[in-house]
Simulated assay, not measured.
Amino acid sequence: MNADEAAELLGHCSGFDNRQPSIVAAKSWASALYDVPLDNDTKAAVAAYYTTPPQNPNERLWILPHHVRTLRAKLRDARLENFQYEPPAGELDPNYLARLRGQRHAIASGRIPAPTRAPMLEGGPSKEFMRELEARGWQGNRTVPDEDVSAGSLADTVRRAGPLGVECPACSAALGRPCHSGLATAKHPLGKPLAKPHTARIRVAAGEPPPDMARQAAEEDRIREASRLALERIKAEQAERKAAEAQLEDDAQEVSGE
């Protein structure tokens, strides 16, 4: 795309966003789209950009060169979705790469209608081939014997991998559901989902025996009580130290007054 073609493209864009094209803008767009021709796909990319509403309704749409390049490539790739190379008659094709590129370009540019569906495989094993298989003992597709595959038996044998494959013993989160905190909110009545499963759930998923929740709760209470006593002891020591420092200051003042 040269500067004149870029100026024409900017004029096409101005019909959507009311921009004021300039010579400087045309040269800049030409340098950014130097390998993109001004064709119907390029203009269709502009229309596709302004057809999609912005995420913020108050935001102004303003197309840039990289939008044109990306959307044009998507339009052309969509035509190649069901592309199938058509080789010439015979087994050898010395011009394979040139023929492949030509066929892809013809469909991507829209010069040849794009195939509407992917080609399907046709035919099957020949009768001679099937007779050879049967002569060697083949009896058709493998059959599965009848077994009890009730929902209960499947639920007992099929499990999701990882901690989410077991019920959480800490918060009672169901299979496949994330662990949650104990604090209910308006948005999360059962508690806010946690990014990481509880430690007890991880251990159970690893095959360790489930923890004794009552014993674990008692241990947590003991730790909290020990922390509370330690905090009170620290506060008491700080108070005694401040009192001793204040007494030293008073004694120093009395000595200096004498």
Rank of each mutant, 00 (worst) to 15 (best):
Q216A: 15
Y85S: 06
Q103E: 08
D156G: 06
E122P: 03
P119K: 14
D146T: 14
P189H: 11
A206S: 07
T116A: 13
G123W: 12
A78N: 13
R101Y: 08
G165C: 12
M130Q: 04
S153V: 15
G110L: 12
G182W: 06
L80W: 04
A89Q: 12
S126P: 06
H105F: 01
R99P: 04
G124L: 04
P88E: 09
M130H: 02
A170K: 09
K187Q: 14
R131E: 14
P145C: 11
L164D: 12
R104L: 15
P210D: 06
C171I: 01
L194E: 01
E134H: 02
P193R: 14
T157K: 07
H180W: 00
P145K: 10
N141R: 12
P145Q: 10
G191E: 10
A195P: 00
M120E: 12
L121K: 10
V149W: 05
L154A: 11
W138A: 09
P163Y: 04
H188D: 14
P193A: 07
R79S: 06
V149D: 09
P115I: 10
P210E: 13
G102N: 12
G207R: 10
A98W: 03
A173P: 00
H198C: 14
A106E: 10
V166G: 05
E91N: 11
T185M: 08
E132A: 15
V144F: 15
T157N: 09
E81L: 14
A135T: 02
M130W: 07
L92Q: 13
A73S: 09
E86G: 01
P88V: 07
C171L: 13
M130S: 05
S109H: 05
H188M: 04
A78F: 00
H105L: 02
R117I: 02
V204W: 04
P197Y: 04
A206Q: 11
A114Y: 08
R111H: 15
L154Y: 08
E134G: 05
Q216C: 05
R111Q: 14
G102C: 02
K127R: 11
P119A: 12
P113V: 02
M130P: 06
M213P: 00
A170G: 00
A106R: 07
P210H: 00
S181I: 02
S181E: 13
G137L: 09
K127P: 07
L121W: 15
H188I: 04
L194W: 05
T199Q: 13
S153C: 08
A161G: 01
E122Y: 09
H198S: 07
A195N: 03
L154E: 10
G207Q: 07
P94H: 03
Q84P: 00
E122L: 11
G140E: 03
A106W: 00
F83E: 02
A118E: 15
Q84A: 14
S172V: 00
V204R: 01
A118K: 10
P189D: 06
Q103Y: 08
G165V: 04
C171R: 04
L75Q: 12
P163G: 02
I112H: 12
R111K: 13
R79A: 11
C168N: 01
P125T: 01
T157I: 07
R104P: 00
P193H: 09
